[in-house]
Design a protein around this nucleic acid. Structure first.
Length: 300
DNA sequence: AGCCAGGCTCTCG
DNA sequence: CGAGAGCATGGC
């Protein structure tokens, strides 16, 4: 095991970030440590992260349980943790708005929900469709435990997210037995197949928004909502907000009294690259205010 | 028990 | 081409 220190841009709070919304399996947050198996060119690299510096001067300690691939793993980890992302302009924007200013002390340092990698983000987005978050988390867990490679760390078992090969080998029948609907099983299977044939979801990050959306929506099983969730969380294209998302609509109704999706779209498009972080804050604020946030003083 | 939950596709009329 | 059915699991 080797340990590294990462100095994120402050304010930063690992705890707020992963209690705002629990991460999707196989990423695990136990209240102190974030656990993850990172897939690298040099093999599977298990890591464990904890925050050892306060929110305003944050410091992360990363333990890497592998002799090789640590550089690549740390890079992927930083991307996932949004360790070097700058939310200052989002905070400036929020300060100019009465409803948003109020939540700022509570959410500062919470990073927006992010997928670990492109394929994982797209698969998860498909599995999140329609059903409740709890139900989707349960299916994702079964999917990962059923198909992903297990890795032992001490007495703990972590899992790698299933590779395209893992998914192909399983086939639609096995996917169904893990709890996916007939349609979702074939969407995910076809996606894995497309990736093995050269489709690179991560490569869409370089394309203009409209073009990337069009390519995504040409995939069976990927409509506008799924494409937008993936753009925002998988590619970190934060100018994109899934405006017709149930939770987003609820949040806009509560905070602005706005119902119309087109109005939501016009508001968020004015927020530019701050749109997804702000919309995510609104969503978390409205859904889990009392339970998770605590007070500004006690937030780490 | 039955409906809804962070959609999407396919089928009818 | 618009409306409606069907779908997976979990929570109420």
């Amino acid at each position: 095991m080797k340990a590294y220190e990462i100095e994120p841009r402050g304010p930063y709070s690992l705890h707020l970030t992963f209690t705002g919304t629990e991460p999707a399996f196989p990423t695990v947050y136990d209240g102190r440590y974030l656990w993850r198996v990172v897939e690298t060119g040099e093999g599977l690299v298990p890591v464990r992260v904890e925050q050892i510096g306060p929110r305003e001067e944050p410091l992360l300690r990363v333990e890497v349980f592998s002799s090789r691939g640590s550089g690549e793993a740390l890079e992927a980890l930083c991307r996932f943790l949004c360790a070097h992302d700058d939310l200052r302009s989002a905070y400036d924007r929020m300060r100019t708005d009465r409803a948003l200013r109020e939540m700022l002390p509570y959410v500062k340092g919470m990073m927006p929900w992010t997928a670990f990698g492109p394929l994982e983000g797209l698969v998860d987005a498909i599995l999140f469709q329609q059903i409740s978050l709890r139900a989707a988390f349960s299916i994702i867990r079964r999917f990962v435990e059923g198909l992903g490679r297990p890795v032992k760390i001490g007495q703990q078992v972590l899992y790698a997210f299933p590779s395209p090969e893992d998914i192909m080998r399983a086939g639609p029948g096995v996917l169904r037995s893990l709890g996916l609907s007939k349609n979702k099983a074939s969407y995910v299977f076809n996606l894995a197949k497309a990736v093995l044939e050269g489709f690179d979801p991560g490569g869409l990050g370089d394309k203009p928004t409209e073009e990337a959306m069009e390519i995504l929506m040409s995939l069976k099983g990927v409509g506008r909502w799924t494409a937008e969730i993936f753009m925002a969380t998988g590619l970190k294209r934060w100018e994109v907000v899934p405006a017709d998302d149930l939770g987003i609509k609820r949040a806009f109704r509560q905070l602005y009294g706005v119902e119309d999706v087109n109005v939501i779209r016009s508001i968020t498009s004015g927020w530019e690259r701050d749109a997804w972080p702000i919309a995510y804050y609104m969503l978390v604020w409205c859904e889990r205010k009392e339970r998770v946030m605590g007070t500004p003083q006690e937030a780490r």
